[in-house]
């Protein structure tokens, strides 16, 4: 199980029987002496949505970058299906099915929406060693690209350059391209950041739908969304995990309340809690 810091050890043990897909062991990252991530142990279990929350600067994005090998850890290990992948490259990890999104929307702005999706679906069929490969040889992937286009309701924008889409649509496209790579674990860095309420609902539903068959780890600030869809939550503060469990468990944890909202905000937190439960 997870963290030594968690006061809920015994309660969390039941979850251990589920299959662990992605695991971090003693993951540490220091930047010139500043320890951004400090001995983080994290287990992402198959199925459902695991949220990583914490105040600004807690190290959430760094954990993300470590798990996806965008930056190398100072120490500690990352295991995918029990296999040590700490030394693998970022693109190799993506090929194993660990696909991430980014905090700011990540599309290919000069490619059209459908071309964006094709880039995602064609990945296993292309390689730089076969640069002469024709687009006709990939015609069978067309249908799959259109499938994901419909999934995020962007069909009428198919030929529009992704850079010209409104922000909410960009995020939807980003999610669609992530899905289109057929990932085993999807790591989403603040998927609803900067979105309007309606768009948040749309994205939330998409993530929820997707998570039924696969696994999602997301960093999120929107507590309503976390409360609504996260099955499991880890709270990060000063680079350490201070609590882990369901939303109810975590939100009752005094350490979390203090870290996340400040002790005065206890009352507000309870209100938020009620709202969350209603959803």
């Amino acid at each position: 199980m997870t963290l030594t810091a968690s006061p809920d050890q015994s309660r969390l043990k039941s979850a251990d029987t589920r299959q662990t897909i992605l695991e971090a062991r003693g993951l540490t990252k220091s930047f010139r002496g500043f320890v951004a991530v400090d001995k983080v142990d994290l287990k992402i279990q198959r199925g459902g949505i695991h949220a990583l929350i914490g105040p600004n600067g807690a190290g959430k994005t760094t954990v993300f970058n470590l798990l996806t090998r965008f930056i190398p850890p100072t120490s500690g290990n990352i295991l995918l299906f029990g296999e040590d992948i700490t030394r693998q490259s970022a693109h190799a990890l993506a090929r194993h099915g660990v696909v991430r999104s980014f905090q700011i929307s990540a599309t290919f702005p000069h490619l059209s929406v459908i071309e964006n999706l094709k880039i995602a679906v064609q990945r296993p069929s292309v390689s730089p060693g076969r640069f002469w490969q024709s687009s006709r040889s990939l015609a069978h992937l067309e249908e799959r690209a259109h499938h994901f286009l419909e999934l995020v309701e962007l069909k009428k924008f198919a030929q529009v350059a992704a850079g010209e889409l409104p922000y909410g649509h960009k995020r939807a496209l980003e999610l669609a391209t992530t899905l289109a790579t057929d990932p085993k674990v999807m790591l989403l860095d603040e998927p609803t950041q900067g979105l309007g309420i309606e768009e948040v609902d749309h994205i939330t539903q998409l993530i929820k739908r997707f998570s039924k068959e696969r696994t999602v780890l997301m960093v999120e600030h929107n507590m309503r969304m976390v409360a609504a869809i996260a099955d499991r939550i880890s709270v990060l503060r000063y680079g350490r995990i201070i609590a882990e469990g369901s939303y109810d468990e975590v939100s009752r944890n005094p350490q979390v309340i203090e870290a996340y909202l400040g002790s005065k905000a206890k009352k507000e937190n309870q209100q938020e809690n009620k709202q969350g439960n209603k959803q």
Binding site: V99, S101, F108, H110, I119, R123, T181
Partner: peptide
């Protein structure tokens, strides 16, 4: 073109 547009994203898609 995708790499030129957004290299980290291309990496995260497995390229």
């Amino acid at each position: 073109k995708a790499i030129r547009d957004n290299e980290p994203r291309a990496v995260s898609l497995g390229y």
